[in-house]
Simulated scan of single mutants.
Amino acid sequence: MSIAMRDAFGKKLAELGATHPELVVLDADVSSSTKSALFGKAYPDRFFNVGVAEANMVDIAAGMATAGYHPVVNAFAIFLALKATDQIRNTICYNNLPVIIAGAYGGLSDSFDGASHQSITDIAIMRALPNMQVIVPSDSAQAEKALEYALTQKGPVYIRLNRNAMPDLPPSKTIETVCAAEGSDVTIAANGITASFAVEAVTLLAQQGIKAEVLSVPVVKPLDLAPLAKSVAKTGRLLCVEEHVLAGGFASAVSEAFMKQGISCKFDAIGIEDTFTESGPYEPLLAKYGISAENIADRAKALCK
């Protein structure tokens, strides 16, 4: 089990501050939760707590970006994606500014605060914005790679971060699609923390004679189609899994790309249906909405019939 994604991200922010003098960090009065406080402690003159004002924070970051800085804005994913949408669109994306938007407590990971704080539409919103790249890390190492990558970009990048610690996946040198398990019967393309449940599902499927291939796909936009297409050419079946509503998210991105390229296969997707979620312990809550090793195995098995 790795350290929590937010802890890894906060430590990496502080670490990169030493080698990236252009890096400035802004937070909306939740730095103890987002862990951006670690950067603030190390570089107090480059850290700005703007208070509970996400939209203003985004505009301030945009201004800094025009002055040669590379800002990272930190707040809960749901408030960045909803309260600051106008500013993200019109000041950052329209001007293609190098601002990193770090959405903490993504998906259902703010589990006990309920539907008002659970971010289940952020990927669809951010993916629709021109110039915006969208990354959903699966573990703490991928979160660190995402930040390193984003700092090399000349435009905006949205990184959705999870609150909790998740099992480590096979490492990669960059933020890219990772094959977490090899198989020949069905491809499971898992976005974000769902990858660890997909890896668990491989064992359950193997007990039934089904060999599943698991791809951890953190980059939703721009989507790297080649590894998915290569795997599906072998298996003929694809199950997408995401911690997000099915409308407009990861599975939608994959479906659009497959249709455009004329790639056909048996297909299914696991995500949150057309509903709001609720309060509760994180993993039982995920399971209620279909994100569990058991449900992934059942849906993959059904595809193989």
Rank of each mutant, 00 (worst) to 15 (best):
M1R: 12
S2I: 06
M5S: 10
L13Y: 08
L16G: 14
G17E: 02
L23E: 03
L26M: 14
S32M: 05
T34S: 14
A37Y: 10
G40N: 07
P44Q: 01
D45E: 15
A53N: 06
E54N: 11
V58D: 12
I60N: 06
A62H: 03
A65L: 08
A65K: 08
T66Y: 06
G68Y: 02
G68R: 13
H70R: 11
V72S: 02
N74H: 10
A77R: 03
A77N: 14
L80H: 06
L82G: 05
T85W: 11
D86F: 10
Q87Y: 01
N90W: 00
T91P: 07
I92V: 15
C93N: 13
N96Q: 06
I100T: 15
Y105P: 00
L108K: 05
S111H: 10
A115I: 03
S116I: 13
H117N: 12
S119E: 08
D122S: 14
A124H: 08
R127A: 01
I135C: 01
P137N: 04
D139M: 03
Q142I: 06
A143D: 11
K145E: 07
K145C: 12
A146N: 09
L147G: 15
L151Y: 04
Q153A: 01
Q153T: 02
K154A: 11
G155A: 03
P156Q: 12
L161H: 12
M166F: 15
P170W: 01
P170Q: 03
E176Y: 01
T177F: 05
V178L: 11
A180V: 00
A181S: 11
E182V: 14
T187W: 05
N191L: 03
I193L: 10
T194Y: 00
S196Q: 09
V199S: 06
L204H: 01
A206L: 09
A206S: 09
Q207W: 02
G209R: 02
I210S: 07
P218A: 13
P218S: 15
V219I: 15
V219F: 09
K221F: 05
D224M: 09
A226M: 13
P227E: 08
R237P: 03
L239Y: 00
H244D: 00
A247E: 00
G248M: 00
F250C: 06
V254Y: 07
V254K: 13
Q261T: 04
D268R: 13
E273F: 01
T275F: 01
T275L: 13
S279I: 04
A287I: 01
K288N: 07
Y289E: 07
G290H: 03
G290V: 01
I291A: 09
S292E: 10
I296P: 11
A297T: 10
A297E: 12
